[in-house]
């Protein structure tokens, strides 16, 4: 029994060490946001004099705009993307998993192939197309592809939902069909309510990936007025000759807050989502 306990103690030791190594930069980052610029190179995790001045000054560091504006922009973009993704991907996934139509497996194979397709290959023509539509400096280059079950992670989400729907016993929809329910009715009244857990997973990933999608935002959004948080942060680095590190840390810290919040609220779904998508294939 004693041996067991000392072994467990060893394990805890190892895990604590690992956690410290992993979290040290993050903890330092948090404390640096409260530090003064003179203190910035100190590895200490506790600021000598903590103050919110970095947050206050950083919030309006971009001339003419405050970060409130950039957050509003980003949330508008993501709300549009999220809403359209949930509807389009669940519909398409329902089609692939429950309906029987010619070339179904062929199209589904294409879905899987596009998961792995590097987006560089469509970057230039897509830009030319959206530029031609006059969509540069709007959020349409993000929202329209997502509303057609594409965009960042679109095919992955279809795959994830298909996997889940396949696990729902089909007696349910067959019974509904007997009662004269249409396909749309089955999708909307029977499958949709059962899809809540994977849809939460999809929503989380869709949020996280779009929040961090830097290249897309960089290409399609040039006007500061439309900037997302990521672009605003980069502008803060590039415009000042000496980087105001304290403000940068403060603002970047705030910028990851939504992701962190979502992570802690829905951790279970993240892990499950990765696990099912990774292994049931």
């Amino acid at each position: 029994m004693n041996g067991m306990r000392s072994k467990n103690l060893q394990r805890h030791g190892l895990l604590i060490l690992l956690s410290v190594v992993m979290m040290y930069p993050v903890l330092w980052w948090i404390s640096a946001a409260f530090k003064s610029n003179e203190e910035m190179s100190s590895p200490s995790l506790i600021p000598a004099t903590a103050s919110f001045v970095n947050f206050i000054e950083g919030w309006s560091a971009v001339p003419g705009y405050s970060f409130t504006h950039f957050y509003t922009n980003t949330f508008i973009l993501i709300a549009g993307v999220l809403f359209t993704t949930l509807i389009s991907c669940s519909m398409v996934a329902f089609g692939f998993s429950r309906l029987d139509f010619p070339l179904r497996s062929f199209w589904f194979a294409i879905v899987l192939m596009t998961v792995m397709l590097p987006n560089q290959i469509t970057l230039v023509p897509q830009y030319a197309m959206f530029n031609g539509f006059g969509w540069v400096n709007t959020y349409l280059p993000f929202i329209v592809p997502h509303s057609l079950a594409g965009g960042i992670g679109g095919s992955f989400f279809i795959f994830l939902l298909v996997q889940f729907i396949r696990g729902i016993p089909s007696e349910l929809d067959e019974a509904a069909k007997m009662d004269g329910c249409s396909w749309f009715g089955i999708y909307f009244r029977i499958i949709m309510p059962l899809l809540k857990p994977p849809l939460v997973t999809v929503a989380i990933y869709c949020f996280l990936w779009n929040w961090d999608d830097f290249l897309g935002h960089l290409i399609y959004i040039n006007a500061v007025d439309k900037y997302t948080v990521g672009l605003a942060l980069r502008m803060m680095i590039d415009t000042s000759s000496t980087a105001p590190w304290g403000q940068l840390f403060a603002m970047s810290l705030v910028s990851v807050l939504p992701s962190v919040l979502i992570f802690f609220l829905a951790q279970r779904h993240i892990v499950e989502g990765v696990a099912t998508s990774g292994l049931k294939g």
Partner: peptide, 10 residues
């Protein structure tokens, strides 16, 4: 028909 209708967005 329904099949293609449902996957039509994709």
């Amino acid at each position: 028909l329904a099949g293609y209708l449902f996957i039509s967005p994709w």
